[in-house]
Structure formats: C-alpha cells, structure tokens
Simulated assay, not measured.
Amino acid sequence: MFVLNQASDLDEPWLQFKNLLVRQLAFCIASPNILAAIPAELVLKHSFQLHASKTWTKHFQHYHSRLLYLDQHPQELEVFLQQLKSTRLGLRFEMFIWFWLLDQNYHPYKVLGHSIQKIAGAKTLGELDFLLLNTETNQVEHWEVALKYYLAERDFSLAYWYGLNRSDTLVRKLNHFSQKQFQFEDALEYEIERRYAVLKGQLYLPVEPTQQIIPPWVNLKRRLGYWGSYIPPQNSHFYRLQRQEWICPASHVSSETAHWWINGLYLQKDKPNFYMFRHAPLLSQRVE
C-alpha cells in the first residue's frame, strides 16, 4: 500500500507569500537546517557549527515586514537574481542568502566579503562563501551555504544518505565542509572566530515500510519527504514540481497530473506530501 504519513503542524511560514521568488527567499531564511546536530560519527578535521532552528525563526521574524513588502513589490529581488546566469539550485540558494544578508537593517550581520578566493601562488586553495561580522558578538564568522537533497537507504546511518547523483552523499558533503571548506584561519586580513554550515533542503525516507530508526541528527523541525520507485494510485493527485520549485513550490499547482516515467520531485495536491520518484535502474547503481 502506498501511504505517506506527514506531520501537518510543522511551522512553514514561507507558504504565506504569493510571489514565488519571495516564497523561496522566505524559505531560505526561515527553514531550519536539515541536520539538528553534527553526527557524532563524523570525524572532524576542522570544527564547525550549525545554527539552531530557533535562530532561523528569529531571523524570519525580523525580516517578515520586508518579505511582506517584497511580496507586493518584487522588482528589487527580481533584478538581483538576474545576476545569476546558472540554473543550479545551490547557486540560486546562495543568491537568496546574499540578498538577505545585504539587507543589513534586518539582522546583526555585516557582509565583509562574498565568494572570497584563497590563493597561494598559482594554486587556488579554496573559496569562502561569506565572511561576516556579527555585530551582536563582534566576532567574524565564516559561512558556507548549501542546498541539498538526500535519500536514506539501508539502515539510515550516515554513510547511506545519497544525493540524486550517487557520488554526492551526505557524509561526503560534511567531510568536505570539515576537511576543505573550513580550513582557513583568516580571510581579507580578518581572523575567523566562528564557522557555520548553512545546510538546507530536504531529506527523504524510503516509502516502503521500515523498522529503521531516524538518526537523532536528522532535524524533525524540517519536513521530511519520501522517495521510491512505486507509482502512487491515480487518486492520490500528485503533480511534478518544476526544478526551481524544489526550493519552495508555487502557491498554485504548476503542472499537469504526474507522468511517472520522469524522475523528479512530486507534490500531492492540497497536502504537504513530497515524493521523490526514482526509476529502479537508477537506484541499483552504486558508487564505491
């Protein structure tokens, strides 16, 4: 039987807005990280932190009046996003975060730098997404931001959360944060005092019944989706989300009834059920 069990009482304030870009901006600010904590089994080379969910709730509350204005007058946001020529969702997410950070009247951060390259001679050592001064603590913070979608397999342990490209795994991303992206002690002649990963998106559990336990590091304040290769019954009324809607769906149904030969993310009409449909041959591929 195809059954999706979803909590209906999660706080998802981004859904109150009508303009799609503003809904997505609100999601990027208000949604909690997909992880509630850094998994204990992760071996850290360079330590970093995750913002608590209540921190993002506070940021959204402070920005709410601005979002209401943008919902009626989105031109400024539209023009800002025109700088982005890529269709990659991760870069789009970064642009939304940058737009919010530049609105300095609504939060305690001052942008010291964005996309900062660290170069030694002819070699590029890496790049920092954001260097910020937190005016409440007077500390310099390094933020790395990422929008990710991972599907749980086997025993739900850290090693078995796969992205849509199976070489992109959750453990690989976390190791990249620790081993590569947070290696720097300074940037732009500022000493880095705190390091934060802003890791948002969605996690998906297999639709098949399972006795596996959800790990404690999964943030249950963020809605979980389901994934599988099963085709839901016709009366379940799923439709396929457009690629940009993976950040946040439009306020109206944006496509026809689902055609299940196409891999992608699907949403149930009038219900908050997300289903990542994957063809079985794709699931059988393993990257060692």
Rank of each mutant, 00 (worst) to 15 (best):
V3F: 12
L4H: 03
A7N: 14
S8Q: 13
D11I: 14
E12M: 12
L15R: 09
L20H: 05
R23T: 03
A26K: 07
F27T: 05
C28V: 11
C28R: 00
N33M: 08
L35K: 04
A36H: 08
A40Y: 02
K45V: 15
K45E: 14
H46G: 07
H46E: 11
S47V: 04
F48P: 04
T55C: 03
W56F: 15
T57D: 13
K58E: 15
H64M: 01
Q75I: 13
Q75A: 13
L77V: 12
F80S: 12
Q83G: 14
G90D: 10
W98Y: 14
W98A: 15
W100Q: 06
L102N: 14
L102G: 09
N105F: 02
Y109W: 13
Y109M: 13
Y109S: 06
Y109D: 08
H114I: 11
S115M: 02
K118D: 02
I119H: 03
T124N: 13
L125N: 11
G126Q: 00
E127V: 01
E127P: 01
L128D: 05
D129S: 13
L131V: 12
L132P: 12
N134C: 13
T135P: 08
Q139F: 05
Y149H: 04
Y149V: 01
D155N: 15
S157P: 03
L158Y: 11
S167E: 08
D168V: 02
L170R: 01
L170W: 00
L170F: 03
N175A: 08
Q181W: 07
E185T: 14
E189F: 12
Y190K: 12
A197G: 05
A197H: 06
V198C: 07
L199A: 04
W227Y: 09
P233I: 02
P233V: 01
Q234W: 04
N235H: 11
Q242Y: 00
Q244T: 12
W246R: 05
I247C: 02
H252R: 09
H252P: 00
S255D: 09
W260V: 09
N263F: 00
G264P: 03
L265E: 03
F274S: 06
Y275A: 07
R278S: 10
P281Q: 11
L282M: 08
L282F: 12
Q285T: 08
